[in-house]
Structures are given as structure tokens and as C-alpha cells.
């Protein structure tokens, strides 16, 4: 296949970026999208040009590193798929493909397609955990959990923290990411003692990081490579409302 790529190139965080075009002369339909970029990068490196920088690691769709907007869609056109698991057979010979980084105030560009997603870690620091130290846990089967709740918690916990939800949202909202963690822990008995402060602190941190609000467009759900349901946002809103009314005085 022959392709024309248009890629966001930005040398450093403060540098001015721009779209640059490249011809890919030989792509195979069996290649993954990132392998197609590897081939282009080999070509650039050979010519003495700076290869396109992009985050990637496991290339199995689970680490959450890869992060690029392909033809306007985070992770590209295939539903429920990360960019690393997207294959070139999804495209046609002669296609123009536009590749950009996640665009959000809270995710500043470091170089080309690489952004800083440290904001997500800081949201987890604000409350996305159960405060148990190592060593004192009771026997695991002392906490029976209805299968339905455990399965639902697992559906929320499947989030890979890639940030596609933010990139897809016109408000750059992180509600899907935050609600997945709030819901995962709120659905389990282990998460109950801290559920009030967890949701308040995480939402507070989310706002501080500069993410926008949710206006119910569900673009996040459509873009999510793990198909996390937007129902969790509703759950988080209920948790937040409850916590705001009934939170204890510290």
C-alpha cells in the first residue's frame, strides 16, 4: 500500500509545532499502525532526519502508553482498539492519514506525539486507592463479594489510563477515567470506608489539573479502547452528590 501521512511535529514543549507530510511507499496490510510508523522512522533515521517520537511499550493494547489521534479519532477508526493493535488493513491504498497527539491543556506536548499524562497519576494520588498497609490483611475469603459486583468492578478496573477519553472530549474532560476508578472501588466492600473522601478528593484534583466538565456527549465511551461504559460517570455523579451532602466534618 502507498500512503500519505500528515504528522504533528513539535521539537520540544515550548517549540512551535506543525503538520508535516510524509510518503509511505510500502506498507503491508498485515502491519500494525505502529509498525508502519517504525518503517517510516527507519527511513527518516537513515536519511538523517529526526524520527517521529511516539509513546509505546507493550504493543498488546494493555499498557496504555500509545496515544495518538488518527484521522480525528483517538487510537483510530477501529472500535475498542488501541493504536498498537490497529492494523493497516483498516486503511486503503492511497489514503491520507492525519496523526496528532492527545490535545488537552492538562496533557502538555513533550515532543511530536508524546504528551505528559502525569495529571492522571496525581488524580490517583488524591484518593484512587484503599488505604491498607502491607501485612495486616485478613484471609481473602473473609470478604465475600457478590459475583455481579465483582464483575462490574472489574469492568471499571479494566481502564488502561491511556487518556483517549480526554482526547475525544470537546471539553477535555477526564470524567470517564476518574469515574472508572471511583466506581471500581465504590462497588467493593474494601472501598467503603474511604468512599466519601475518595470521590471528593479525586474530583477536586481533576478540576485542579485543568480538565473540563462532562456535557454528556459520550465521545469518551466511543473512543475508549477498553469500552468502559459512560454509566460509570453517572455512578460517580451519584457518589459525588452523596458525598457532598453527607460528608463528615474533618
Amino acid at each position: 500500500m502507498k500512503l500519505k501521512l500528515h504528522v504533528w511535529r513539535q521539537k520540544s514543549p515550548k517549540a512551535q509545532g506543525k503538520m508535516t507530510s510524509y510518503d509511505v511507499k510500502q506498507a503491508s496490510p498485515d502491519m500494525s499502525f505502529l509498525e508502519m510508523l517504525d518503517v517510516l522512522n527507519e527511513d527518516l533515521a537513515q536519511k538523517g532526519e529526526d524520527p517521529i517520537a511516539f509513546d509505546h511499550d507493550c504493543r498488546e493494547g494493555i499498557c496504555g502508553s500509545c496515544s495518538m489521534v488518527i484521522n480525528g479519532q483517538p487510537h483510530g477508526p477501529e472500535q475498542g482498539t488501541t493504536a498498537c493493535q490497529l492494523h493497516m488493513r483498516k486503511f486503503k491504498d492511497g489514503d491520507d492519514i492525519f496523526i496528532e497527539p492527545w490535545r488537552a491543556k492538562a496533557f502538555p506536548v513533550l515532543k511530536d506525539l508524546i504528551v505528559d499524562r502525569g495529571a492522571f497519576d496525581r488524580i490517583i494520588q488524591a484518593g484512587g486507592f484503599v488505604s491498607v498497609n502491607t501485612g495486616g490483611a485478613q484471609d481473602a475469603n473473609c470478604i465475600p463479594i457478590p459475583k455481579h459486583n465483582a464483575d462490574l468492578a472489574m469492568d471499571a478496573a479494566a481502564c488502561i489510563g491511556c487518556g483517549a477519553c480526554v482526547a475525544a472530549c470537546k471539553n477535555s474532560s477526564a470524567m470517564l477515567f476518574v469515574s472508572a476508578k471511583v466506581s471500581h472501588l465504590a462497588l467493593l466492600p474494601q472501598g467503603q470506608p474511604e468512599k466519601t473522601r475518595r470521590v471528593l478528593n479525586m474530583v477536586n484534583q481533576m478540576d485542579k489539573e485543568g480538565f473540563g466538565n462532562c456535557t454528556n456527549q459520550y465521545e469518551c465511551e466511543a473512543a475508549c479502547p477498553k469500552e468502559i461504559s459512560a454509566n460509570f460517570i453517572a455512578k460517580m455523579n451519584r457518589e459525588y452528590l452523596g458525598a457532598s451532602f453527607f460528608s463528615q466534618e474533618e
Partner: peptide
């Protein structure tokens, strides 16, 4: 034990046990 206390959602049976 430690992982369950942290909230790791291991697969469960209908009785609620692991």
C-alpha cells in the same frame, strides 16, 4: 490476602468467594 484487601477484583463464584 493483601491484593484482595487493596480491592483487586479477582474472579468470584456466585457464593461470593474467590
Amino acid at each position: 490476602d493483601q491484593c484482595v484487601a487493596q480491592g483487586v477484583p479477582f474472579a468470584r463464584e456466585y457464593g461470593g468467594l474467590l
